[in-house]
C-alpha cells in the first residue's frame, strides 16, 4: 500500500469518524466535543512536502467544516498545525537517525516522551486557535479557558486510546519507497 492510498483512506476514515460518531456522542457536558480528526495531520509521513502538508490540512478542515456548517473554522486550525508541525518535529527528533529511517511519527519512531510532547503541544495549539476563533463571535473568558483545557484533555485521551488500539509498527522508509 503506497503512502498516498494509505493517507486517502485515513482522510475518509477520520472525517466520517468525526462527523458521524464523535460529533453525535451525547455530550459529557454541553461544551465538550471530542475531537480526533486532526490526528490525520499528525500522522502524515516525515518526508512530506510542506506545501502539500498545508494543503492537505486545509482540505481536511474544510471538509469537516462543510459538515458542521462553519466554513473556515476547522480549516484555519488545521492549516495552523500543519504549518507548525515541521518546526516542532525538527526540534523533537535527532536529525541523523530517525528521520532517515522511519516513515511517520509514532511512539516507536520518536520515543515515548518526544512523541507525547508532540501530540500534546499540537492538540493544544489546535484547540486553542479553534476556540479562540469561536470566541471572537461570542463567549467569555472563563468559557474559553474551560473549553480549551477540557477538550484538550479529552482529545489526548482519545489519541492515547487510538494509539493503543491501532498499534502502528514503525515502518521503515526504505520498505515503502
Amino acid at each position: 500500500m503506497t503512502n498516498l492510498i494509505r493517507n486517502i483512506i485515513r482522510f475518509i476514515f477520520f472525517l466520517l469518524l468525526q462527523v458521524f460518531v464523535l460529533n453525535k456522542v451525547p455530550p459529557l457536558h454541553q461544551h465538550i466535543v471530542p475531537y480526533l480528526y486532526f490526528l490525520f495531520i499528525l500522522w502524515m509521513p516525515f518526508n512530506m512536502n510542506r506545501l502539500v502538508l498545508l494543503l492537505a490540512g486545509f482540505a481536511m478542515g474544510l471538509s469537516l467544516d462543510y459538515f458542521t456548517n462553519s466554513p473556515g473554522l476547522h480549516a484555519a486550525a488545521c492549516t495552523l498545525i500543519a504549518y507548525l508541525r515541521p518546526f516542532l518535529l525538527n526540534l523533537l527528533i535527532p536529525q541523523d537517525t530517525t528521520e532517515s529511517s522511519y516513515a511517520e511519527p509514532s511512539i516507536k519512531s520518536m520515543g515515548w516522551a518526544p512523541y507525547s510532547l508532540y501530540i500534546i503541544l499540537l492538540t493544544f495549539i489546535h484547540h486553542f486557535y479553534l476556540v479562540l476563533l469561536e470566541l471572537l463571535h461570542y463567549g467569555n473568558f472563563w468559557y474559553f479557558l474551560g473549553k480549551v483545557t477540557s477538550i484538550t484533555v479529552i482529545s489526548v485521551l482519545l489519541i492515547a486510546i487510538t494509539e493503543i488500539l491501532f498499534f502502528r509498527k514503525g515502518r521503515h522508509k526504505t520498505n515503502t519507497a
Binding site: L54, F58, G61, S70, P71, G72, L73, A75, A76, T79, L80, Y83, L133
Partner: peptide
C-alpha cells in the same frame, strides 16, 4: 500559510 489563513477567516 498566510493566504490560507486569510481565506479561512474571510469565509468564516
Amino acid at each position: 500559510f498566510i493566504v490560507l489563513q486569510v481565506l479561512c477567516i474571510t469565509m468564516l
